[in-house]
């Protein structure tokens, strides 16, 4: 197993208008692996995810302390442009959010075009759509509106859009929660494939989904990391009693 650490989180705390919403989180994200982040609503799992690409600090009154190392370099270090960072750490959201005024092609190309990044657009778009397992379904209507796609297809379009800028890490914030079970299974299948090339961090409400797609799982509760273990271990024999109570459904 490849044990290279892609992202190292060290003593990360996040604040919202002075209130801590994440306390002193330390964990490693292994390269080319899937980390699932689970926990009850308000446990800080989404905040944690948004810290990894510095989206958290966009909210008014938000701040962070601690370190997040991407390939050994602190993403909050001087000279690190958060805008450039987000090209290396992509993100997919809970609800599919294709840009409605752009065609399917333009959506995938948006990251490159609006960032004036060089590259053969046709080739990049095809590669991204193939990587997102959507190419065969849309190759004949690339100029069409994303509004004509199903929810699951839209979500895979958003994944393709994120992949087109060739990120190293892909963050997914409950990517299947708005999808039906079949569409959600396709996204999960895709996550398995993405692991070969990308490092994936996925936040999910759905524990079975976390169990199915991830290599390791982090359980957050009240803004604290309670346990980070290999997924098989966390779901059969968790180390912490809090985790046990959560995964078995003895909560609150």
């Amino acid at each position: 197993m490849d044990e290279t650490v892609r992202m190292a989180v060290r003593g990360l705390s996040a604040f919202h208008r002075g209130t801590a919403v994440l306390h002193n989180v330390t964990l490693d994200v292994r390269d080319r692996s899937v980390l699932a982040v689970i926990g009850p609503s308000g446990c800080g799992k989404s905040t944690f995810l948004r810290c990894l690409n510095r989206m958290h600090e966009l909210a008014p009154g938000a701040s962070v302390t601690g370190e997040i190392l991407l390939d050994g370099r602190d993403i909050h270090g001087p000279g690190v442009d958060p805008v450039a960072l987000r090209r290396r750490v992509g993100m997919v959201f809970q609800r599919p959010n294709p840009f409605p005024t752009m065609s399917i092609f333009e959506n995938v190309a948006a990251g490159l075009r609006l960032n004036r990044m060089a590259g053969d657009l046709d080739a990049v778009v095809e590669r991204a759509l193939r990587a997102a397992a959507l190419w065969d379904e849309v190759k004949d209507r690339l100029r069409g509106s994303p509004g004509s796609l199903s929810g699951g297809q839209q979500q895979r379009l958003c994944i393709a859009r994120a992949l087109a800028v060739e990120p190293e890490v892909l963050l997914m914030d409950e990517p299947a929660s708005a999808l039906d079970p079949i569409a959600s299974a396709r996204v999960e299948d895709l996550v398995h494939e993405l692991k070969a090339r990308y490092t994936v961090v996925i936040v999910t409400h759905n524990m079975q989904q976390a169990a199915r797609v991830s290599d390791s799982t982090a359980f957050f509760y009240l803004g604290r990391l309670v346990e980070h273990s290999p997924t098989a271990e966390l779901f059969t024999n968790p180390r912490e009693e809090r985790t046990e109570e959560y995964v078995t459904g003895r909560f609150g």
């Binding site: 524990m207 059969t236 078995t248 459904g249």
Partner: peptide, 9 residues
């Protein structure tokens, strides 16, 4: 129920 943890065991 898809039991987990001690329930699964």
């Amino acid at each position: 129920r898809q039991p987990a943890g001690s329930d699964l065991r």
